[in-house]
Computed example of a mutant assay.
Amino acid sequence: MDDYPLLGMFFTILWFFLFIAWISCLLSILRDIFRSADLSGAGKAGWTLLVVLLPLFGVLVYLLARGDSMQERELQEEARREQVRQDYIRSVVNKPAA
C-alpha cells in the first residue's frame, strides 16, 4: 500500500466510475437507435457502426443530431407501456369471479 498513494487510488476509482457512466450512456444510445421507428434499417446500421467503431465521436455526433428527440421517444414508450398495463388491469378486474 506504500507504493500506491491515496490520490492514485482516488483517480483509479474516479476513472472506474467514469467508465461505468460511459457504458451506461453507450447502452442508452444503442437502445434508442434500435427503438427509433423513424430510422430505416440502413440508418440504424450506420449509427450503430459509428457508435461502436468510433465511440466518443459517434456518441457526440448522435447526441447532437438526435439528442433532442431521445426524451420524446422515451416518453412515448413509457406511455405505451402504461396503456398496456392499464388495459391488462382492466381486463383482470372486469373478469367475473369463477
Score class of each variant (00 low, 15 high):
90 R>L: 08
20 I>R: 01
41 G>M: 01
48 T>L: 14
53 L>T: 14
95 K>Q: 13
2 D>R: 08
84 V>G: 02
88 Y>H: 01
14 L>T: 09
96 P>L: 08
97 A>I: 13
65 A>D: 03
47 W>P: 01
28 S>R: 15
87 D>S: 15
9 M>W: 05
56 L>Q: 08
61 V>A: 10
54 L>E: 04
72 E>W: 08
50 L>Q: 01
59 V>S: 09
83 Q>E: 15
35 R>C: 02
33 I>N: 03
77 E>H: 10
12 T>Y: 08
16 F>I: 12
7 L>E: 12
67 G>I: 03
29 I>G: 01
70 M>F: 08
96 P>H: 07
94 N>Y: 07
89 I>V: 15
14 L>D: 11
82 E>L: 15
29 I>H: 01
90 R>N: 14
21 A>N: 01
33 I>T: 03
53 L>D: 06
72 E>G: 09
11 F>V: 13
90 R>H: 07
42 A>R: 08
89 I>S: 05
17 F>P: 00
20 I>V: 13
92 V>H: 00
80 R>N: 10
40 S>I: 00
76 Q>N: 14
88 Y>A: 02
40 S>T: 13
76 Q>F: 07
90 R>D: 10
11 F>I: 12
37 A>C: 01
31 R>I: 15
19 F>A: 11
22 W>K: 01
27 L>E: 09
53 L>G: 06
23 I>G: 04
60 L>G: 08
47 W>G: 03
39 L>W: 12
49 L>K: 08
62 Y>I: 02
73 R>G: 02
44 K>R: 05
97 A>G: 06
86 Q>D: 11
22 W>T: 02
6 L>E: 13
98 A>V: 12
85 R>W: 12
59 V>N: 11
56 L>F: 12
5 P>A: 11
26 L>A: 05
37 A>I: 06
53 L>R: 13
46 G>N: 15
61 V>T: 04
16 F>V: 11
63 L>A: 04
46 G>D: 10
6 L>T: 12
68 D>W: 09
22 W>Q: 07
65 A>K: 07
84 V>N: 11
3 D>K: 07
42 A>D: 10
18 L>G: 02
58 G>E: 04
75 L>G: 04
81 R>Y: 04
92 V>L: 08
49 L>M: 05
46 G>H: 13
2 D>Y: 10
10 F>P: 01
47 W>T: 05
55 P>Q: 11
4 Y>Q: 03
32 D>L: 04
16 F>W: 09
9 M>R: 14
30 L>S: 02
75 L>E: 15
24 S>V: 14
82 E>M: 08
86 Q>R: 09
19 F>W: 00
54 L>Q: 14
42 A>L: 06
8 G>N: 09
13 I>H: 10
14 L>K: 15
33 I>V: 15
41 G>Q: 05
91 S>E: 15
95 K>I: 06
44 K>G: 02
93 V>N: 00
17 F>V: 05
3 D>I: 02
